[in-house]
Design a protein around this nucleic acid. Structure first.
Length: 721
DNA sequence: GAAGGCGCG
């Protein structure tokens, strides 16, 4: 897979005011500083350093002069002037919050300062966490280059499916989720002298759990040893540097008006040439805007620059995603229609104009009903700044905000931390596995609501992961916590091993753990549906997805991959041999022909392989039920009994656990069918409440297979149609 | 009757 996202902090456009204030204990996010918006930034040492870097890396040079050039660049970074001050603060304080702008050198330089200061002596490491995998890889690679070592040696990285470290590794870049997994095996994180939590302002769920956990680790390590320094945390807010950026504020109010304004703005922008980045909320909005823009652009007078409209969102197949990086032909203006993927996850060079309608689709969670939803909500001020910062990275740019200055002032300062907006079942299971029995009393930086935690405890108890005393059960709970899966899927794996269909369940949980493998653009919906019919099972989506995975692996084997599709792609990406390229190409075209998202499916294969290893590591065996899909459906009922729904007299469905009315999602193969009773994997609310990934079951199986949950309920009355 | 913001393990 090509890596998509140049690291944001790799783009050096700081304004050169490189103050890096040290702060005392426990004052995270004590302030935010940086240049005010709409101000011109003066050229600075940091900006000049960018030019030098580009020039030096392009010229063929000897290794020695290249290192010298790298060293000069390092010295020009704002953070370089405060190295000794920073190191002293780290030595003096248990916890340090470092705030500096994008490009000031926090991510790449601070770890090297710590390395020079001796924090990696005696086999100890410094961990630096990142919210995203690509960032962990690119930063580690960059730092290794600066230190003149091979990545994986003194400087390494660790992400899911890829451990690029060795016994000599001293600086270890890793995803925050990966450090959490490590903490399960080594609760004192005894191999690390320091932990640096980068991009802490993003407040991912993993970052927030780490904060609470590290606070406990500090206390226990202090108690265990007063002689050694304990772990340190660094929280970094990335200031957004705006170069000559102006904000044009209009008065649109409703999303529809904003859409029209955005449309008009793109068409009528009489600004000097430069690409436009328009933020929209989702795939559907992007697809309709794409149609509208193309239609209008075809009627434009020849005097106006032509428009090249390029969509980008996470579910788009990667070949199409790559189009945003291709420069527009001369005389053509590129217009990128993006979701918030373009906010942090990928940086598109050459953007001169950003149009920000001020809306974003955000996850919301109602703990009372257990329903997750995606709601279109106003962005926060921090998000608005982040968006405007995507323009003018290389030269002056503009951001057009489609809302009034008054509305901007009313926006929240920052986005609500993720941990307050989602289902906590997995977090609570992990905390229990860390030995934290009092989850309600856990030291969260922002505490989720009591009801959200209690609901998660109830959920885990229903799955048998907790004892009556609320402790992690053994072996069920301890085994569940070891899987990198949602608790319900982890339990499903364990049950399937007893019910003789673990091979099928392994395929199911792998497919459930990735974004939908079916790619269905609006304009080719019929074609996509026809393609899906090749795999369809009348029993529902789970078996349909198993069929997809089986066909894929068979295709890969026929293409000459030997041991399976995962192996095929692994080899092809690591090798340049023509044979592997051919295999890779054939699998790709099979995916395209079947409207299958190759990236998602590849990921499912990787997960399948990883989970298989975990199951076998527990001494359990993976066995297939062959064609006995009845057994498998019974196993689905036994596993997903909390997510069962029955058809009502009026044709709607009632979710049995919450009692709420739901409908079968149009993406389900059972859409349009009228099964009496189903189990499902997701309950999402959009215009109405939909259930997704559904299998037809017999309602009598529920009290039979989950008597502890259904014994009291009368399910033996047949549903009338 | 008609639809999937972004990540991480």
């Amino acid at each position: 897979m090509p890596s998509m996202a140049p690291l944001s902090s790799g783009n050096k456009n700081g304004d050169g005011n490189g103050n890096v204030p040290g702060r005392g204990n426990g004052v995270p996010f004590g302030g935010h500083w940086g240049p005010p918006e709409s101000t011109s930034a003066t050229p600075s040492a940091a900006n000049e350093a960018v030019g030098k870097r580009k020039a030096t890396t392009l010229l063929p040079q000897t290794r020695v002069t290249k290192r010298q050039a790298l060293l000069n660049q390092r010295r020009a970074l704002p953070i370089a002037s405060v190295e000794s001050e920073l190191v002293n603060h780290v030595k003096k304080n248990e916890t340090l919050v470092v705030i500096g702008e994008t490009g000031s050198g926090k991510t790449t330089q601070l770890p090297q300062f710590l390395h020079s200061a001796g924090f990696c002596k005696g086999g100890m490491m410094v961990a630096i966490t990142q919210p995203r995998r690509v960032a962990a890889i690119t930063v580690a690679t960059r730092v290794a280059e600066e230190m003149g070592v091979e990545v994986g040696q003194e400087v390494g990285y660790s992400i899911r499916f890829e451990d690029c470290t060795s016994p000599s590794t001293q600086l270890k870049y890793m995803t925050d989720g990966m450090l959490l997994r490590e903490a399960l095996l080594d609760p004192l994180l005894s191999r690390y002298s320091l932990v640096v939590i980068d991009e802490a302002h993003e407040r991912t769920i993993h970052t927030d759990v780490l904060f609470g956990l590290l606070k406990g680790v500090q206390k226990r390590r202090q108690a265990a040893s007063t002689a050694t320094k304990s772990s340190k945390k660094k929280a970094a807010t990335t200031g957004v540097a705006l170069k000559d950026l102006q904000n044009l504020l209009t008065t649109s109010k409703t999303p529809l008006e904003k859409k029209n304004s955005a449309l008009k703005l793109v068409i009528h922008l009489e600004e000097i040439p430069g690409d436009i980045l328009l933020f929209l909320t989702g795939q559907e909005e992007i697809e309709s805007m794409e149609r509208l823009l193309k239609e209008r652009a075809s009627h434009l007078s020849p005097k106006v620059p032509k428009l090249l409209v390029v969509p980008i969102y996470a579910a788009l197949p990667s070949e199409q995603q790559m189009r945003v990086f291709q420069p527009a032909p001369d005389g053509t203006r590129k217009v990128i229609l993006a979701t918030n993927i373009a906010e942090t996850s990928l940086t598109i060079p050459g953007i001169r104009y950003v149009i920000d309608p001020g809306l974003v689709k955000a996850r919301a969670y109602n703990p009372r009903t257990g329903v997750e939803s995606l709601e279109v909500v106003p962005v926060s001020k921090a998000q608005a700044r982040q968006r405007s910062g995507r323009a003018g990275r290389e030269r002056p740019g503009k951001c057009f905000r489609l809302y009034t200055e008054d509305l901007y002032r009313k926006l929240e300062d920052s986005t609500v931390p993720e941990i307050k907006r989602c289902n906590l079942a997995n977090v609570v299971l992990q905390l229990k596995a860390f030995g934290i029995d009092d989850v309600l009393g856990f030291d969260f930086m922002d505490k989720p609501s009591r009801i959200a935690i209690v609901k998660s405890l109830e959920h885990l108890y229903s799955l048998g992961a907790l004892t009556d005393e609320g402790k992690l059960s053994d072996p069920i709970g301890t085994r569940m916590a070891r899987f990198p899966l949602e608790p319900m899927y982890a339990k499903a794996m364990l049950i399937s091993c007893e019910m003789g269909c673990s091979e099928e369940m392994l395929a199911t949980v792998s497919m459930m753990s990735v974004d939908s493998v079916f790619y269905a653009p609006r304009d080719k919906l019929q074609e996509a549906n026809n393609a899906r019919n090749r795999f369809i099972s009348a029993d529902g989506d789970h078996i349909t997805l198993i069929n997809v995975l089986r066909h894929y692996i068979q295709e890969a084997e026929e293409a000459g991959a030997g041991a399976g599709a995962g192996e095929a792609e692994d080899t092809s990406s690591n090798s340049n041999s023509n044979e592997n390229k051919k295999v890779f190409k054939r699998i790709r075209s099979w995916c395209t022909a079947n409207f299958i998202n190759a990236r998602s499916l590849k990921r499912a294969v990787d997960i399948q392989k990883q989970i298989r290893g975990y199951v076998e590591g527990m001494g359990l065996t993976i066995i297939s039920c062959g064609d006995d899909m009845l057994s498998f459906r019974r196993c689905l009922a036994a596993s997903f009994f909390l997510n069962a729904a029955r058809r009502q007299l009026d044709g709607t469905y009632r979710a049995l656990a919450s009692g709420q009315s739901v409908a079968i999602h149009p993406s389900s193969v059972l859409f349009g069918q009228k099964p009496d009773c189903v189990v499902f994997n997701e309950l999402v609310r959009t215009n109405r409440s939909y259930i997704r990934n559904i299998t037809r079951v017999d309602s009598l199986w529920l009290p039979e297979l989950a008597p502890h949950y259904y014994a009291a309920q009368a399910l033996n009355t047949p549903c009338q149609s």
